[in-house]
Amino acid sequence: MFLINCPFCGERDQSEFSSGGEAHIVRPKQPTELSDDEWAEYLFMRKNIKGIQFERWNHVHGCRKWFNIVRDTSNDKILSVYKMGEKPPVNYK
């Protein structure tokens, strides 16, 4: 359980949000050109990092807007919050 600083509403309880999983998985530009391996990679394979992970979240019981966060999955500390379309912070790798 933790608090998330929604870029539109401010700090709220995590239970108001839903997790959209790993961020920055780019939707294929030419879906018809994709091989089965590439589809599997896009649809199913996940980094599932223990440590610093970039994620999408949705404030589903609030403003219902999507945004990104950087979170350490080994202790649930949120390191950064940034809006959709913004470049991910470079100081976390």
């Binding site: 359980m1 309880d13 599932n48 223990k50 994620e55 999955t73």
Partner: peptide, 13 residues
């Protein structure tokens, strides 16, 4: 919980 985490805790809700 709905999110990836390696903390062996879980949320109160």
């Amino acid at each position: 919980d709905s999110y990836v985490s390696y903390t062996q805790r879980g949320s109160h809700n």
